[in-house]
Simulated scan of single mutants.
Amino acid sequence: MASHSEDALRLYVDSQFCSPYAMSAFVALQEKKLPFELITLDLAAKKNHEKDFTEKSLTQRVPTLLHGDFSLSESSAITEYVDEVFEGPALYPKDAKQRARARQVQAWLRSDLMAIRVERNTQVIFYGKKFAPLSEAALAAAQNLFFVVETLLPVGQENLFGEWSIADTDMALMLHRLVQHHEAVPARLVEYAHHQWQRASVQQWLQQGRPVL
């Protein structure tokens, strides 16, 4: 773990390790092979609204990354910052158009598909929770999700943009909300989601100790 030097990295995440956005930031740091301190906050107890944290996080949300005396919240901002500032494996495609597309995917996953995010929250993935059948709105959102992935994912390829990018982790997590609840998902997309789940950085997040709900 990093010491609290002027260049130390600290990542604040939720204490249940359920936030898909915290996972994205965590995976980014792991992929860059950067030492960092992982700090958990109990969101149910509103610890993110206490003064100690609000002085660090502009939006009072997790994930929040501290790099020395600089703090940054919002996961895609964090992953872009980490990719630009630190050496190591790229988190985004090298080609400008594909890099823009990867960022588009991240923005879309964070702003759309609300019915899936509500009806299949990430407790499905991290706690094996079961919910009622999907609503018509969620089924329509699922078809939209499948269309986007099938359009972007070349046949026979394992990643959306050739080499792995952080957008693959984010996309796979959205798919796993359905896959792990045993919804009807096209086989090619199930294979893609399972492949992305095998990355060492993802497995490290999956293996975090989670409190009982």
Rank of each mutant, 00 (worst) to 15 (best):
M1Y: 04
M1I: 12
M1A: 13
S3D: 15
H4S: 12
S5R: 03
D7R: 08
L11T: 12
L11P: 10
Y12E: 09
V13H: 09
V13Q: 07
V13C: 10
V13Y: 08
S15R: 10
F17N: 05
C18W: 09
C18N: 08
S19P: 13
Y21T: 02
A22S: 15
A28L: 10
A28W: 04
L29D: 00
Q30L: 02
Q30D: 02
Q30M: 05
E31L: 12
E31P: 06
P35V: 00
E37D: 09
L38D: 05
I39Y: 00
L41K: 04
K46G: 06
K46E: 15
K47V: 00
H49I: 01
D52K: 09
F53K: 05
T54Q: 05
E55T: 10
K56F: 12
T59H: 11
T59I: 04
Q60K: 07
R61E: 14
R61S: 13
V62P: 07
P63S: 03
L65E: 13
L65I: 13
L65N: 13
L66D: 04
L66K: 11
F70S: 08
S73W: 04
A77S: 01
T79V: 07
E80F: 11
E80Y: 08
V82M: 03
F86T: 11
A90C: 08
A90E: 14
L91R: 01
Y92M: 09
K97V: 15
A100H: 06
R101I: 09
R101E: 14
R103P: 14
V105P: 06
L109W: 04
L109F: 09
S111H: 02
S111L: 02
S111V: 01
D112F: 00
L113C: 13
M114H: 14
A115H: 05
V118Q: 13
E119K: 10
E119D: 13
F126E: 00
A132V: 11
A132I: 06
A138Q: 13
A138K: 09
A138L: 11
L139A: 12
L139H: 10
A140I: 10
A140L: 12
A140T: 14
A142V: 02
A142H: 02
Q143P: 09
N144D: 10
L145D: 10
F146R: 01
T151P: 01
T151R: 15
T151I: 06
L152A: 04
L160S: 00
F161L: 04
E163A: 11
I166A: 11
D168M: 10
T169K: 01
D170G: 01
M171W: 04
M171C: 10
M171S: 06
L173H: 11
H176Y: 00
Q180L: 14
Q180T: 04
H181P: 01
H181Q: 05
H182R: 14
A184V: 15
A184E: 15
A187E: 15
R188M: 05
E191P: 07
Y192L: 12
H194C: 14
Q196E: 07
W197I: 01
R199Q: 08
V202F: 11
W205P: 02
R210A: 01
V212D: 15
V212M: 14
